[in-house]
Simulated scan of single mutants.
Amino acid sequence: MAGFVPMDLVHLADDEGNSVRVAVRGPVPNWPEGLAAEIVVETPFVSGRVDLVLYERKLDAWADALDTLDAGEDIAWMEMSRGASLFIRLAGERDCPEVIVEDETCSMVTVCVPVVPPDDWIAEHRGRLERLRAVWSAP
């Protein structure tokens, strides 16, 4: 897809400098059903990234995860697939949400990032998903 502009499907950040993003870079060469992406963790203490591929089923699972979060429940996204998993606990150990990125397949590292997202973050992420789907499905 020519002209794809990279975007963040997930962007959870706070004023303390902690953030977790799922940055979508564009179509996977020779596989039109896949989008090249990466999970990017940035904190004052630790930073890292891990590559992943998104496709329709993973985007559907993210939509379901957003519904679950909106109902007040924690989520595990991409837990049963190859590669990294992303978990969100709404009530973490520091009295704020926590995003856990687990990369058991490659690095065998798990990172837990506390974040205090804005009140409308779930609606914002639904909008991010809709925008990605609109651009990706465009002719």
Rank of each mutant, 00 (worst) to 15 (best):
D15A: 15
E16W: 12
E16K: 13
E16Y: 10
E16H: 12
G17A: 10
N18H: 08
S19W: 02
S19I: 03
V22H: 01
V22T: 01
A23V: 04
V24A: 04
V24L: 03
V24I: 11
R25S: 14
G26C: 10
V28W: 07
N30P: 03
N30V: 12
W31D: 14
W31R: 15
E33T: 10
A36D: 14
E38F: 05
E42F: 06
E42N: 13
T43Q: 05
P44A: 11
P44M: 11
F45I: 10
F45G: 10
V46R: 13
V46W: 12
V46L: 15
S47W: 12
R49A: 13
L52W: 00
L52T: 01
L54D: 02
E56S: 10
K58L: 02
L59E: 01
W62F: 14
W62K: 00
D64N: 11
L66N: 03
L66H: 00
D67H: 07
T68D: 07
L69R: 06
D70K: 10
A71L: 06
A71E: 13
E73W: 08
E73A: 13
D74Q: 05
W77S: 01
W77E: 00
M78G: 02
E79Q: 11
A84K: 01
A84N: 04
S85L: 08
I88P: 01
R89F: 09
L90H: 10
L90Y: 09
E93T: 13
R94G: 06
V99G: 04
V99H: 03
V101H: 02
V101G: 02
D103V: 03
D103Y: 04
D103H: 04
E104C: 10
T105Q: 11
T105L: 15
T105D: 15
C106P: 01
C106E: 15
S107N: 13
S107F: 07
M108G: 14
V109I: 12
T110P: 02
C112S: 15
V113N: 00
P114W: 00
P118R: 02
P118Q: 02
D119W: 06
D119N: 11
D119Q: 10
W121E: 02
W121Y: 11
E124T: 07
E124G: 01
H125Q: 06
L129D: 02
L129H: 00
R131Y: 04
R131M: 07
R133V: 00
R133H: 06
